[in-house]
């Protein structure tokens, strides 16, 4: 394979990566610079993203390309623009119309997602058979007891007394095992990100650089 010096993009990416890593030693101006560039570029990215992918193909292009067939798009266009009236103090109340439609729609969708897509199937999924082979029976019992006790822990916010006390306590134990597992996975996830950056630095920047300069 022919070796090449890292390209301009790789150099930029490598420097920004190192600037951010420098924070591990202590806060410094290079990190602050990288952080500001990140903030600016992220906001700019949103603008380009929304324009190229949604506003242009779904709104402007059909509206201005064939107005007579797509005039109804003026309605979401108007609601979208009205949202920005919140920055005009005297007319801010009109922006509530748009916000009401936006929030209202997602509230309606969310209600169905929760009731129909979570509570019903998850409850059904907990109604497990007990006339199964031993290993599965143990597993099914663990799930049934676990779900019920966790819910008891969540839903009886008054002091746990009588039979509720050991039940809620068991619920906490289930949560702790699950949070522990989540912690284990979180460690794995965070290390994955570090691996990604180090692999970039080593394979895409340092290796070609060292190999070209020292003739590897």
């Amino acid at each position: 394979m022919e070796l090449q010096l890292p390209g301009f993009g790789q150099w930029i990416a490598a420097f920004f990566t190192l600037f951010v890593f420098s924070f591990l030693y202590k806060d410094n101006i290079l990190y602050r610079f990288a952080e500001s560039v990140f903030a600016g570029v992220s906001f700019g990215y949103y603008i380009g993203l929304a324009y190229i992918n949604t506003l242009e193909p779904n709104l402007f292009s059909p509206l201005f390309g064939d107005f007579s067939s797509n005039w109804s798009l003026l309605i979401p266009f108007a609601f979208g623009v009205l949202l920005y009236l919140r920055y005009v103090p005297k007319l801010a109340w009109i922006s509530q119309w748009s916000l009401a439609v936006y929030i209202g729609y997602y509230i309606g969708v969310n209600l169905l997602q929760r009731l129909h897509g979570e509570i019903l199937p998850q409850t059904k999924g907990t109604m497990l058979p007990l006339n199964v082979e031993f290993g599965q029976l143990i597993g099914n019992l663990v799930v049934i007891v676990g779900v019920i006790t966790v819910l008891i822990y969540f839903f009886f916010s008054s002091p746990h007394r009588g039979p509720l006390k050991p039940a809620a306590r068991t619920g906490i134990y289930f949560l702790m095992i699950s949070f522990g597992a989540s912690f284990g996975y979180t460690v794995m996830g965070r290390i994955s990100l570090l691996i990604g950056r180090l692999t970039f630095l080593v394979d895409e920047w340092a290796r070609p650089l060292v190999a070209t300069v020292f003739g590897g």
Partner: peptide, 22 residues
């Protein structure tokens, strides 16, 4: 899962970050 699979019945598979896997 709770919208597309639940309302439209299409099989859904998830590839996710370790943090979300549990």
């Amino acid at each position: 899962i709770n919208l597309v699979n639940a309302q439209f019945g299409i099989d859904v598979a998830i590839g996710t970050t370790a943090v979300s896997a549990p």
